[in-house]
Design a protein around this nucleic acid. Structure first.
Lengths: 151, 151
DNA sequence: GTTGAAATTCATCGTGG
DNA sequence: CCACGATGAATTTCAAC
């Protein structure tokens, strides 16, 4: 699972991380090697699992999702982990879920249309999951940074 | 800043969110309209700021980043907000930063190579920022969900 | 908003150094 | 690992409906 990444791979990734639709030939010109070589390296990186697909980034606001919140989740008992994970996965408003050290068992990131919607998910969905004892909500009033790892 | 998105736009976005490199012509065939129409609609969505670029997703682990952590940041005084933001932006390990309600002033997401690296950022970088009084760290032992909004 | 066709550019294979 | 060359496909533009 450990794959060697050289400088050229890094350079390729640094372009693709910023713009998934950049033509391979443009990267090739920047790197001074042929398009076929870029093609092969990208394929290698994909096969190795280093690249995990690509995505267009859509602003949640534009789709009517005005509220972003993090929710810390407490469990009654640790052994309810699996069932709770299953229930959480079924909640579409949750776009990230981490199993964390510290006070919470889970820390999840949610996108909701408005505060009413957020409350609905908290009260009617999350708190109804067997095993979840309580939650702690942090509403993101402003997302100041959102970027990829620096290569 | 409010733009109308119809069903076709939604369908286009639903494809591009999952795979930024899918050919527009393939989307065109699925939607039953011409490739040129897809091209123009995507351009419209980009110009309207609904689409905020595209990215290849790279697994942090593959690049040697083994540790993902969320850190809650407390400030001495609220008016130090601006300076602290500036300092936080300069920390490359921080890939997200939210201004949040609740106990913390900021909640940031960090990627570090290992626990040693994490500790270094916490002690030598974050705690050295004037205005930051203390921090609370949640290490993500497992990221269970990572997805885009459901369209 | 949409189409269809044209010109350009690209992705993706070989084969071979 | 890489370059080259060929071909089929995709992108992009534009006139026109």
């Amino acid at each position: 699972m450990k794959v060697q990444i050289d400088d050229v791979d890094q350079k390729i990734l640094s372009y693709l991380i910023k713009n998934a639709r950049i033509p391979f030939l443009e990267i090739a010109r920047e790197c001074g090697i042929s398009g076929a070589a870029i093609h092969q390296r990208v394929k290698k990186l994909e096969d190795a699992g280093i690249i995990d697909g690509s995505r267009f980034i859509v602003k949640p606001r534009a789709l009517g999702y005005e509220v972003c919140a993090y929710v810390g989740i407490f469990l009654d008992h640790a052994h309810q982990y699996k069932q709770v994970v299953g229930r959480i996965e079924a909640i579409p408003e949750i776009i990230e879920c981490h199993f964390t050290t510290g006070n919470f068992t889970f820390l999840v990131k949610m996108l909701c249309r408005d505060n009413q919607h957020l409350m609905d998910v908290l009260i009617n969905t999350l708190q109804n999951v067997p095993g979840i004892s309580k939650t702690e909500t942090f509403i993101s009033l402003d997302q100041i940074i959102d970027r990829e790892i620096r290569l």
